[in-house]
């Protein structure tokens, strides 16, 4: 099989297109690169969607934590504490066991005049269940970052907004929020990087892979266990992830430049990669 044929057969194997059976013997480097690369689709899917939806929830939770009202503040504090204080691995297991226990036929909600049935079986599948966990997890971590940034918005900015007669929503939208985002962005970039790294845990933590459709680490592990040779599969996936990390840094760097564009050159915050936020 030429490398192009391998690509056609396995390029989209992770989403169920192409060859049904995984290669069994005589593994080539090309097969390693193609199959592990096809698994990367799942890492991107989990990472991008969790990050996108998590961003909005994180903003809401950060604001709730900064709120003076204990009915808002306490739940936000607990949400952040539970998701940051426990391992993501355990969260995956716990979520999976919970979703499995939900009745297969769905939950009936009587509304008086009619009854609606909410289907629940899809939650025990990785594409939905793991995404939900990652979404909540990244929301908690990002909320803590945003909360910290919100607390370090310079006093002068707020006083200036007051002096201009801004208050409430317009003060938040035009002064607080952009500054908060600017201050939080370097840490948030790290969060994004480690969220992508965390997506590799999905298929090692209870969520079964349907018809051997897995993420990149699932296939790397498959190759390593079939050939008993870790020196090809793992470096291949490592290179993929280094590239992914570089792309994330570049994209977030563009946003960072935009957030900092009004500041003099010397005051701009630079993104520094720190291994701070592994879960």
């Amino acid at each position: 099989m030429t490398c192009w044929e391998t690509f056609e057969a396995y390029g989209l194997r992770s989403i169920g297109l192409g060859e049904r059976l995984l290669p069994k013997t005589g593994f080539t480097l090309c097969e390693h690169v193609v199959l592990i690369g096809s698994g990367l689709v799942w890492n991107l899917y989990f990472g991008i969607l969790a990050l996108f939806f998590g961003f909005f929830l994180a903003n809401a939770v950060a604001l709730a934590k900064a709120s003076a009202n204990p009915w808002l503040r306490k739940p936000a504090e607990w949400f952040i504490y539970v998701f940051r204080g426990s391992p993501l691995f355990i969260q995956f297991f716990l979520a999976y066991e919970t979703f499995v226990l939900l009745p297969r036929a769905g939950i009936d909600i009587p509304l008086g005049f009619t009854t609606i049935t909410i289907a629940t079986s899809w939650l025990s599948k990785a594409w939905a269940g793991a995404l939900l966990v990652l979404f909540l997890n990244t929301a908690a971590y990002s909320a803590e970052i945003f909360y910290g940034a919100l607390r370090s918005v310079p006093k002068g900015d707020i006083e200036a907004a007051d002096a201009y007669g801004m208050s409430g929503w317009s003060r938040f939208r035009r002064i607080l929020w952009p500054t908060m985002l600017r201050l939080a962005w370097p840490a948030y970039t790290n969060e994004a990087i480690f969220l992508f790294h965390a997506t590799t845990l999905v298929f090692f933590s209870g969520f079964p892979s349907f018809q051997q459709r897995g993420d990149s680490l699932y296939y790397a592990n498959y190759f390593a266990s079939q050939t008993f040779n870790p020196f090809i599969a793992y470096p291949v996936i490592a290179i993929y992830f280094i590239l992914l990390t570089l792309i994330v840094i570049t994209l977030f760097g563009i946003v960072n430049r935009r957030l900092n564009r009004h500041l003099p050159q010397a005051n701009r915050s630079r993104i520094r990669l720190r291994p701070q936020l592994i879960r």
Partner: peptide, 17 residues
């Protein structure tokens, strides 16, 4: 080494290697 690559890859790789 740990900056760009997920740690779980090292956990799988180092013991076998």
């Amino acid at each position: 080494m740990v900056r760009g690559v997920p740690d779980i890859i090292f956990f799988l790789f180092v013991p076998i290697a």
